[in-house]
């Protein structure tokens, strides 16, 4: 029971940081989503040791390991778009796959090039 209370508390902190992120986005008219601002904010808070990892750890770990549960309702909305994926809609899947292949290949090549340069430099 104590553990459950702790987890709810941790998730409440995450929610609070999300709301602060939203507030920052609206106040400063930023394009970056409030949730992403909240994530950067939490990272800075942890990194600068402004808050202790133990204040959010258990809840966050549980949250992250079951992240996809929260994606289900949004994904189920596809029920209203099913006709898109019949016939010509298969093209959409092919577009996504080609683009995904390009991202994977090119980002991998670029970072590999920089890592090798760095490794050479250190030897």
């Amino acid at each position: 029971m104590l553990k459950l209370g702790k987890i709810i508390m941790h998730i409440a902190i995450l929610y609070g940081i999300f709301l602060i992120g939203n507030w920052i986005q609206v106040t400063f008219h930023l394009i970056i989503p409030g949730s992403v601002i909240g994530m950067i904010l939490l990272f800075i808070l942890l990194y600068t040791k402004s808050i202790k990892v133990s204040w959010i750890e258990d809840g966050t770990r549980l949250f992250v390991s079951h992240l996809t549960l929260f994606f289900i309702p949004a994904t189920v909305g596809i029920v209203n778009y099913l006709q898109l994926f019949s016939g010509k809609g298969i093209l959409l899947i092919i577009i996504v796959l080609i683009s995904t292949a390009l991202v994977m290949g090119i980002s991998g090549v670029v970072s590999q090039w920089f890592v090798r340069k760095k490794e050479l430099h250190h030897e």
Partner: peptide, 30 residues
């Protein structure tokens, strides 16, 4: 879908904090 989302909307509310939570794995890999 709208009927399902009467409840689904509550789960959707947690999408924002879910993104915030990603700071933790990033912190672990600092």
């Amino acid at each position: 879908y709208d009927t399902y989302m009467i409840g689904g909307e509550w789960i959707n509310q947690l999408l924002g904090p879910a993104v915030v939570a990603l700071a933790y794995p990033l912190y672990q890999q600092r």
